[in-house]
Design a protein around this nucleic acid. Structure first.
Lengths: 350, 350
DNA sequence: TTTAGCACTCAGGGCGAATGAGTGCTAAAA
DNA sequence: TTTTAGCACTCATTCGCCCTGAGTGCTAAA
C-alpha cells in the first residue's frame, strides 16, 4: 500500500498545519495554500481516503481532519523533512550549553532545564551506567571520630561521604585500610563483592577491620546508585502552555504521573539503533502516556556511562524541530563529556 | 478596637469554613452549625460589622463572606488553635522522615518532596551558611594527568572534584601542596584569600605552584556555593489541585514565577523570632505572590548553617495544619542534623 | 479525473429566563 | 437593648434555545 505523491503531500501538510495551529485542518484551508493547485473538493476526496486508511481522524462530522497516531508515525518515518538549525539557533544552543562543569548531577539538571526551555516542553534527563567499578579508594582523617571516604569510579565520577564513628580512628589504620581496599576491591563490580572476598579484606585490614563493613556498605551504595538510572525532570509547567492541556484535570493527571517513577520505564524501550527515538501516543506502553508523545535521545558520557535526554508533550508536537534540537544537544554533550570541551563554537563572521 | 467574643468566634468559623470549602460562607450555613446558638439574622449583622472593619470581604452582593488578608492575619495571630498532630500523623511523619543520610543536596530535595506531599502544596527548601571555611584539604592522585581535590568545610560538608591537567602530576607534589594548603588556607573565610596570602602559598608550594590557582579556584567556588543559598522547589503540580488555580492562566503564571529565582528573596524576610513565619497574600513583597500565602520555618543544621523549609499556596490555606506539620518537620530535621538521629520514635503501644 | 454546487451536520457562541443563595433592612419579640 | 422573623432585592450561575458558519459527502457537470 503505497501512497500517491499527492496523498503524501496532503498528509504532510495536514500534520504540519495541525502542529502549528492545534486546530483540525479543513479542505478549504489547504486549497488556499500557495503551492496547492487542486481544489478543495479534490482534497476532500483524498482526505476521505486517508481517513479510510486510518491516517487521519475526524473529531466530529463537521470538523476538519487531524492526524491519527498512525498518521504521525508515517509522517515521522517518511515525510518529515530534516529541520535545519539556523545559524542563530546553533549559536544560542551553544551559548546555552556553556555550562560550567560542576558536579555531575548539577550538570544533568541544568541540561534538563535547557532542553525544556529550548523545546518549551517538560524534559527529563537520566543516566545509566553498566559495570561500574571502583577505580580508587581514599580514606581521609577528618577528626578524632570521623573520616572521609572518597570513591572514584570507572565512570570518572567521584563521590565522598563523611563517616562518623563511635570509636576513634587512627591515621595508620586508615592508611592500611586504604591500601588494602585499593589492592582488593578496585576494578570489581559490586556483584562480585562476595562474602569470601570481604572476609579476606577484613583479615588483611587488621586493626581497621571494624571499618570494612561501613566502607563496603557505602561503596556498594555508590555503585548501585550509579548503576540505577537517576532521573531528573524539569519544566513540567510548560505543559500548561499547550492547548491540549487547557483542561486542568488532564494536565494534573499527566503531570503527577510524570512526577512518579513512571519515566524510569522509558529507557527500556530505547534500545533501537536510531539515535533519536520517538514514541507517538499509543505507542507508549504506559497507559498514562497514551495521548502523549515522547522524544528521546541517547548520548555517551564515556566509560560505559550513558545519558538520556527526552521531552514529553502532546502528540501534536513539532517533531522535526524537537528532534533536531535534541540531537544537536546530545551530540554536543557527548563531545563535551568525551573531551571536556564545547563543540566547535562556530563563530559566524558577523 | 477589641472584638467581642462572638465576633471572634464568627471570624474563626468563617476562616475555617472557607479554608475547608473554598466557597464564600453564608449566614445561614453558619447558623446551622451545632454550636451556634444565634440566628442567621444576628450573624448577618455581625458579619456586616466585620466587613466594615475590613476583616471580611464580599465577592459580590449576593454571595457569602470570605476572609480578607487582615482577617487571615488576625486569625493566624490570635484565633488559630494549635493543630495537634495525631499519633498517627506523628507516626507517618516519622516514617516519612526515615531518609538515609545521603549527600546533602539529596536530603534537601527529599525533604522538599516530603513536605510537599504532606501539605499537598508546592514546597521549597533552601540552605544558607555564614562564614563557611575550609576545615581540611586533601589531594588524591587519580591518574597521570589528574587528581581529586577534596574539601571539607566547617559545615561538615565534603565536596570533591576531579581535576584534569595538561601536565602530569606527581605524588610528592600533591603531598606537599596538600600540607601547605592545610597549613595556610584552613579556617579562613574565602574573603580573606588575599593576593598576598595566595602568593605566599604559591611560593611555599614549590614545584606544585602551578596547581595553586586551580585548587584555590575550586575552593572559593565551593565556599561561595555553600554561602549562597541554594534552592530546591518541588511539587509545583499540587497547586493545580487547588480550586483557586483551576484557571490555567493563573496557575501557569504563578508556577513560572515560582520556577524563577524569585523565592530567593523570601529568606530576607524571615528574620523574626518566631520559628514559623507566615506571609499572607499582600504581605508578600513580590507582587506575583500578592494572592498567595507562604509559610516557612527555619531549622539549624549546625556549624552556622541554616535551612529553610516553606510551602506556597493560596491564601485560603489550612494554616494551622501546615504550620504544625512544618514545625514538626523542622524540629525533627534540626535534631537529626544535630545528632544524626531521628527524633524519638514515639512508638505507640498498639 | 477533477471541479462546482448543494444539502446536511454539528460544535460553539450569544442571549434571555429561571434559579436560588445570600444580603440588608424593618418591625416585632424577648 | 438585643435578637429574631420576614420580606424585598441583588446577582452569579445554569440551562435551554437559536443561530452561525466551518466543514463534510455526494452528485452531476466539465
Amino acid at each position: 500500500m503505497e501512497l500517491t505523491d499527492r496523498k503524501q503531500k496532503l498528509l504532510r501538510i495536514i500534520v504540519e498545519e495541525y502542529i502549528r495551529t492545534a486546530e483540525p485542518v479543513g479542505s478549504k484551508a489547504i486549497a488556499a495554500m500557495p503551492d496547492v493547485t487542486f481544489s478543495s473538493a479534490t482534497i476532500r476526496n483524498e482526505m476521505a481516503e486517508l481517513t479510510q486508511l486510518g491516517l487521519l481522524e475526524q473529531p466530529h462530522t463537521s470538523a476538519g481532519r487531524i492526524p491519527s497516531a498512525a498518521g504521525y508515525r508515517l509522517y515521522i518515518d517518511e515525510l518529515m523533512q530534516d529541520y535545519r538549525l539556523s545559524v542563530d539557533e546553533t549559536k544560542s544552543l551553544n551559548q546555552a550549553m556553556e555550562l560550567k562543569m560542576q558536579e555531575f548531577d548539577k550538570t544533568m539538571t541544568q541540561v534538563g532545564k535547557m532542553v525544556s526551555k529550548l523545546t518549551n516542553l517538560p524534559a527529563y534527563t537520566l543516566t545509566s551506567a553498566t559495570n561500574t567499578t571502583v577505580k580508587k579508594f581514599e580514606l581521609i582523617m577528618a577528626g578524632e571520630h570521623s573520616f572521609i571516604l572518597v570513591v572514584m569510579t570507572s565512570g570518572e565520577v567521584v563521590k565522598n561521604k563523611l563517616i562518623k564513628l563511635p570509636l576513634s580512628v587512627t591515621e595508620t589504620d586508615l592508611k592500611l585500610l586504604s591500601a588494602v581496599l585499593n589492592a582488593t576491591l578496585t576494578e570489581i563490580p559490586a556483584e562480585d563483592f562476595t562474602p569470601e572476598l570481604l572476609d579476606k579484606v577484613s583479615r588483611a585490614a587488621g586493626s581497621a577491620a571494624s571499618l570494612v563493613p561501613i566502607v563496603v556498605d557505602y561503596t556498594t551504595q555508590v555503585l548501585a546508585e550509579l548503576q540505577k538510572s537517576e532521573i531528573w525532570l524539569t519544566g513540567q509547567t510548560r505543559l500548561l502552555g499547550q492547548p491540549e492541556y487547557r483542561d486542568i484535570e488532564k494536565a494534573e493527571k499527566l503531570l503527577s504521573t510524570l512526577d512518579e517513577d513512571m519515566i524510569s520505564n522509558l529507557p527500556a524501550t530505547v534500545n533501537r539503533d536510531s539515535p533519536v527515538q520517538i514514541l507517538v501516543g499509543p505507542e507508549n506502553i504506559a497507559k498514562e502516556l497514551k495521548e502523549t508523545s515522547v522524544v528521546m535521545t541517547r548520548f555517551d558520557i564515556g566509560d560505559g556511562m550513558q545519558g538520556l535526554i527526552g521531552v514529553v508533550g502532546p502528540t501534536r508536537m513539532d517533531y522535526a524541530k524537537v528532534t533536531a534540537r535534541l540531537s544537536y544537544f546530545a551530540e554536543s554533550l557527548g563531545k563535551m563529556f568525551g573531551k571536556h570541551e564545547l563543540p566547535e563554537a562556530k563563530e559566524s563572521e558577523e
